[in-house]
Computed example of a mutant assay.
Amino acid sequence: MKLPKPRKRGGTYTITISHQNKRYYCTRDTAAECEHWAALKLLELKTQEKIEAGELKPKYTFRDLNDKYFQDVGQWNKSKSSLAWIKGQYKNFEIRFGSLAQKSIYDIKPKDLTIWRNNRLNQVGENTVLKEISHYSAMFTFAQKELFLLDENPWMQITKPKKPKARARRIHPSEIEIMLNALNYEIGMVPVLPQHYVAWGFLFALETAMRRGEILGMEKKDIYDEYVHLPKTKNGDSRNVPLSVEALELLKLIQHDGRRIIPQSENAFRLMWEKRKAEVGLNNLHFHDTRHEAITRMVRIRKLPVEVLAKITGHKKIEVLVNTYYNPDAKDLVEAFKSIEKNKPA
């Protein structure tokens, strides 16, 4: 199509083009700038016309999809912990994917994602990679079913890493002592310094089987005579956690005037924990191992039946509780067996 000639008006130039019975115009300093604008505008209009007719796909990079998904879906996640994780994925997207972030989503193939998966497995564990694959796969499903940009999801065509065997790690009393020493804390001490609150949270987790996020989210108004009420937990439900004598004694040590029991951010708490455990060589100790240890103790010492235990821990699936978090050793099983035999009616 032949471009119209720019018209001079005073000290500037103007040009007008028509497309599909609509007129578009602009004003520039020179005739050449007007012609350049007109050529680009016509190309843009024709491209959009082909896109709307289904003859051409719109330009859409992986990075564009990441932005769109976060704006429309990700940032509206109601779970505080999930939202924090999603924000982390969004913020570190370029670092995660490098040049693949700039690639068109139409050109991303299962081979590209398999290479990414293998590289990522050299950086983090299988569980992390599985979680990330699920997130980015949801992103491409969104492009497929909501934006109608894709015919299929390439993430569904790659082999996922095998889910690693659940941790069955118990915490030895000597490890508790080592961590308390590393955090400069003694049992019965009123916590004052940041490391003291980390130690206090460690001990409280061992008594209650509460998650780190749940402990850090506890407020004084949620503490009752014999239990703590958790208004919102990982699975979205509220629950009540009974408090042992030891847990109640720990709560008496909290003497600050703040709203939350532990006046510390989750990130600061985590970094302190990781730093101190690394200093004493307990790299294989995870804070979440306290949940395994506490649940096993509740069965071994308090003889709690599994249905009661599930209400305390917040597990909706009994098999997850039994197979993942209850970690008895051979001695525990023998003692439980003998206890049942002893109480059988003659």
Rank of each mutant, 00 (worst) to 15 (best):
A38T: 10
A38E: 08
A38K: 05
A38R: 07
L40F: 12
K41D: 02
K41N: 00
K41V: 06
L42I: 14
L42Q: 01
L43Y: 14
E44H: 11
E44Q: 15
E44R: 08
L45F: 04
L45Y: 06
L45V: 04
K46R: 15
K46M: 14
K46W: 11
K46H: 14
T47F: 15
T47M: 13
T47I: 12
Q48W: 10
Q48L: 11
Q48R: 12
Q48H: 13
I51F: 06
I51T: 08
I51S: 12
I51E: 12
E52K: 12
A53S: 11
A53K: 15
A53P: 01
G54W: 00
G54I: 02
G54L: 02
E55H: 14
L56R: 11
K57I: 02
K57S: 11
K59S: 15
Y60M: 15
Y60C: 14
T61C: 10
F62W: 05
F62P: 05
F62H: 05
R63E: 12
R63I: 06
D64A: 04
D64Q: 07
D64C: 05
L65Y: 01
L65K: 01
N66K: 00
N66A: 10
D67C: 02
D67I: 03
K68I: 10
Y69E: 04
Y69T: 07
Y69N: 00
F70G: 07
F70N: 02
F70D: 03
Q71V: 15
D72G: 08
D72K: 11
D72Q: 11
V73R: 12
V73S: 08
G74N: 01
Q75T: 09
Q75E: 14
Q75S: 03
Q75C: 10
N77I: 09
N77F: 00
S79N: 09
S81K: 09
S82C: 03
L83R: 03
A84S: 14
W85R: 14
I86G: 03
K87S: 05
K87C: 02
K87T: 02
G88Q: 06
G88R: 01
G88A: 03
G88I: 00
Q89I: 04
Y90H: 06
Y90S: 03
Y90T: 00
K91Y: 04
K91E: 02
